[in-house]
Design a protein around this nucleic acid. Structure first.
Lengths: 352, 352
DNA sequence: CGGTTCGTTGACAACGTTTGCAGGATGTCG
DNA sequence: CGACATCCTGCAAACGTTGTCAACGAACCG
C-alpha cells in the first residue's frame, strides 16, 4: 500500500510485489520464475499482488545477475532486402514464443563485423543469428565470438568449423537452373550476378559453370549493379548486344539471374527491350514474379524454413546442446511460371 | 595483471580496467563516459588499459543503474513487408549512429499491443517507434505507454494527441491517384483495398471517394486478400466481370490499388486476364514496378525520409525536447510509368 | 606562513534481480 | 516426548555500472 503512489510513476518492482503480498522479494522471484517449493496459498497471494501491480520483470537486472540476457541478437546485412525481412520475421516469432527478445543490428554498408556486433555483445545476448552471407566470407572476428556464444549463420556461403549454418546448396542451385534451360535446348546461357564479392553468388556461378562445361558449352558471366536501377541501366546497355548474333556465332537465348538483387532490374531491362523470346530463370523467388510477362520461373528457397531452423538450432545451443557444428541445407523448389520454359529463340538469320 | 587470466573467459569489466590502470572504477567510468575532470596522464593510462583489455561497457548494468537503456524499441506489424523493412533500416542507422541499440518486436498476427510491447518496456528502452498503421487504430494501451516514454508512430492513420507521428497524408494520396485517372478521362474507377480494418487504407479510400463524388461519379470499392495469392484469385474472379459491361452501363476502365499488399496480386490478375487496356495506379511503390507491362504507375511515399524523421523525432524527445505532439506529413511523388496513363478503354459495344 | 579554495580521485551506495545459505516451523519416527 | 528430517521462507550477497560525497593534496591569497 505504501508503494502504490510510487509505482504509478515507474514500473513495479519485485519488492513492491513482495510488500503487497506480505512476503519477501526472494519468494516473489521464486513464484514468478523458479516455480517450485512455495505454498499454494502464498503463491496465489503473490500472483494476485503481481497482477494487481502490473508487475513485469526488469530484464536488465535479471540479465546483470544471470550474466546472460533473455534475448538473442540478429545481425542482418540489409533490412530492405525481402529475404532478410522474412528471416527476421521467423526468428522473431521463435524468440517471442520462448520469451526472448530480439536485438538487431545492421552488418552491411561499411561497418566492420566488430562494430556491427558489439552492440549485441554488450547486451549479453544469449546467441546470435548472423545473416550476411551475400556480403562475403565470415571473418576472423565472428569465429572468435562463436567460441563464447552460440552463433548460427544464415545463408552462409559454406560450412563453418565454428558455428552452425542454415542455407541452401548454392552450387546445386546454380546447376539446377542451368540444367533447366539446357534441357529445353538452350546453349548460349548468360549468368548474371550482383558482383564478385558475394560468395554465395560465386558458388551459384560455379554450379552454373559446371553445368555448362559438362554440356560442352562456354559459360558467360556478367555483373550488374546493387540497385535495381543500376542493374536495369547496365542490362539495357548490355542485353541488346548480347542477344543479337555475337562474335561467337550467336547471341544468348537465356539468362540466369544469380541473386534476387539483380532479378528485378534484369526483368525491367528485358521488358523495356521487348525481349519477349528471351528465356529467363532466377534464383530466389520474388514477390510479383507472376505479374511479369511471361511470369517468371524461379528457383525458390524456403526462406521461412531457413529462418525457423536457424532459430531452432540457436535455441538448442542456448539450451546446452553440444553437438558438432551442423550445416543444414534447405530444399529448393523450382517454380515453372513460363519465362524459363521458353524455347531457344530462332536466330534472325535462319529458318522460318 | 591479476585479472588477465580471468578476463579471457568473459568480458572485461570496469574493475578489471581500473586494476590494470592502477586506479578506481569510478575514475575509469569518468574517463570512458563522463570525460571531464581527469588528469591527462591518468586518462591516457585508463584508455590504454581499456583498449588492451578490449573493454566495452556492460549495458545491462548501465541501464539498470540509469533506469534507461541506450536502446530504442521498434514495433513492426510485419517484417516481411518491404515498407517496414525500409523503416527499420533507417531507424537502425540513426540509432547506431548515436550508440543506441535497437530491440524489435512484431506487433501483428494476433498479438495484443501489450504483449508485443512488453518485451521492449521490460528492457527500459528509451523510446518507441511503432509502425502498425496498416493494422488498425492505436489502442488505449499505447496511449498509456506514451505518457511514460517517447513514442513515435509511423504510418499512423491520424494525428495522435499522445505521441508524434510521421507518415503520408493518406486521404490526399487516395485523392491524387484518383484525380490522375479522372484527368485522363476515366469515369468508372475501382478502388481495391486490403480490408476494411486497416485504417490507413480507409483514409485513402475516403480520398478516392471524395474525388469521385466531386466529379459526380459513383465510387466502387472492393477488398482483396492479405496474401498476393489470395488477392490474385479474388481479382481474377472479380475483374473479368467488372471490366466487361456491367449493370450500370459499363465496366470499369481503371483500378486504384489502395495499398502495396494488394498491388502485386492485382497486377498478376490483370496480367493473367490479359487486361492490357485496363489503367492501373497503385499507392505505394513496389520493387519491380517497371518490369510490369505496361510499367506500373505509382504514388510513391518517401519511406526513407519517413524512417529517418521518425528516428529524429524520437531522439529529440529522448534528449528532452518537449514540444506539442507533431504529425509530420512526408511529400508524395507520382511516378508515371505507363499503366496509369492508359486512356479509357473503348467499350466493346461502341465505335470502331 | 596559515587558511581557504579548488581540482582530482577513491570509497560507497544503489539500481532490481537471482540464488546459496541458514533459520524456523512442522511433521514423523524412535 | 525428544530428536531428526523435511519443507518453506527470508536474509544477504552479488552482477557492473554510475553518481554522490568526502577526502586528499596542491595552489593561491591574505
Amino acid at each position: 500500500m505504501v508503494n502504490t503512489t510510487k509505482s504509478r510513476a515507474s514500473r513495479a518492482t519485485l519488492t513492491d510485489v513482495a510488500a503487497k503480498a506480505g512476503t519477501s522479494a526472494s519468494t516473489v522471484s521464486r513464484v514468478l520464475h523458479g516455480g517450485a517449493g512455495v505454498t499454494d496459498e502464498l503463491t496465489a497471494r503473490v500472483r494476485l499482488a503481481a497482477s494487481e501491480l502490473g508487475y513485469s520483470v526488469n530484464r536488465q537486472a535479471r540479465s546483470l545477475r544471470r550474466g546472460k540476457d533473455t534475448a538473442i541478437g540478429v545481425a542482418i546485412e540489409d533490412f530492405t532486402i525481402p529475404f532478410f525481412g522474412r528471416v527476421v520475421a521467423e526468428v522473431e516469432r521463435a524468440a517471442h514464443a520462448r520469451g526472448y527478445g530480439v536485438v538487431i543490428t545492421c552488418a552491411g554498408s561499411g561497418r566492420s563485423e566488430e562494430e556491427a556486433v558489439e552492440p549485441l555483445l554488450s547486451r549479453s545476448v544469449a546467441g546470435l543469428v548472423v545473416a550476411t552471407g551475400t556480403a562475403g566470407a565470415p571473418q576472423g572476428y565472428l569465429a572468435e565470438v562463436a567460441t563464447e556464444l552460440p552463433v548460427v549463420q544464415v545463408d552462409a556461403p559454406a560450412a563453418s568449423p565454428f558455428s552452425d549454418a542454415v542455407g541452401i546448396d548454392n552450387e546445386t542451385a546454380g546447376r539446377r537452373v542451368t540444367e533447366h534451360l539446357l534441357a529445353r535446348g538452350h546453349r548460349r546461357i548468360l549468368f548474371v550476378g550482383s558482383g564478385p564479392a558475394a560468395t554465395t553468388v560465386q558458388l551459384r556461378r560455379q554450379g552454373y559453370e559446371a553445368a555448362m562445361r559438362e554440356a560442352g558449352l562456354e559459360p558467360r558471366t556478367t555483373w550488374m549493379g546493387y540497385l535495381p536501377s543500376e542493374t536495369t541501366e547496365r542490362a539495357v546497355a548490355e542485353l541488346g548486344e548480347l542477344t543479337s548474333s555475337g562474335a561467337d556465332g550467336g547471341g544468348i537465348t537465356a539468362v540466369v539471374s544469380g541473386v534476387a538483387r539483380v532479378t528485378m532490374g534484369l526483368a525491367s531491362a528485358i521488358a523495356r527491350l521487348g525481349l519477349r523470346d528471351l528465356a529467363y530463370v532466377a534464383i530466389d523467388d520474388l514477390a510479383g514474379a507472376d505479374a511479369f510477362s511471361p511470369p517468371l520461373t524461379v528457383l525458390e528457397q524456403d526462406v521461412e524454413t531457413i529462418g525457423a531452423r536457424a532459430a531452432e538450432l540457436l535455441f538448442a545451443r542456448i539450451d546446452g546442446w553440444d553437438g558438432p557444428p551442423s550445416h543444414e541445407l534447405v530444399p529448393l523448389r523450382l517454380i515453372e511460371r513460363g519465362s524459363g520454359e521458353l524455347p531457344p529463340r530462332v536466330l534472325s538469320t535462319t529458318t522460318t
